[in-house]
Design a protein around this nucleic acid. Structure first.
Lengths: 106, 106
DNA sequence: TTCTGTGACTTACATTTCGTAACTTAGTTT
DNA sequence: AAACTAAGTTACGAAATGTAAGTCACAGAA
């Protein structure tokens, strides 16, 4: 994937944001810190892939994972500053979709 | 993929834009109308998937396909108005990446 | 007039990624 | 002990993607 003369940062950004589920996950976390099970219930993602993506976003420092030592243990995920900085991208998608995207109806 | 109470247009926008290669393809077409082989050479996408994605973007009216009856026949792809309207999304990704994305170096 | 070349795809098949459902682990309440 | 809970894992089949070779229509070369 990718070309000779494209900015490598932009390219990497696309690789992260276009990876299936990631944008939706970030969008979901804009509502604030949330537990694993909350996220899983809101999106119809499987636990296998959810765990995988959260780890990816955590390693990219877009998401922060916090262990709450209750019983049973609860894990909270939230966006970092870098993560919240993606907001304008989501806003731009929202604007484009509200102006241009149509849903087939019967 | 997806939730009960999310705007269906936004959801659809995400499905289109997050589909592997699509955003990069649109980005590439911002340079103006281009032939199939040009696109293929610029991105390292396989012809199988390139054809598939161009058809998808065409059916979403993001891309316009034009046959130029030369010999051998040449096909030109270009963004529609709806397609060019995605520019702010790409700009937002560019800005985010230039501020926040780092590349590992050794 | 068969032979070679071109652009834009297809096709067949291997590899990777994803989804599904069942299982694990540690501590807790019954 | 048995059952329960949250946050994962695991095994495995299904779907998406990559790779390489092939197709088609026509044109100019040999």
């Amino acid at each position: 994937m990718n070309q000779k003369n494209m900015c490598p940062r932009f390219e990497k950004a696309l690789m992260i944001l276009n990876h299936r589920w990631n944008t939706l996950l970030i969008y979901q976390l804009l509502d604030g810190p949330q537990r694993y099970s909350t996220i899983k219930n809101q999106l119809s993602i499987s636990s296998r892939v959810l765990t995988e993506r959260l780890k990816e976003l955590e390693s990219e420092e877009i998401v922060l994972r916090t262990v709450i030592p209750s019983t049973p243990v609860v894990i909270e995920y939230e966006l970092t500053e870098k993560g919240y900085a993606i907001t304008p991208v989501l806003k731009a998608i929202e604007e484009w979709s509200s102006k241009w995207v149509t849903i087939a109806e019967e």
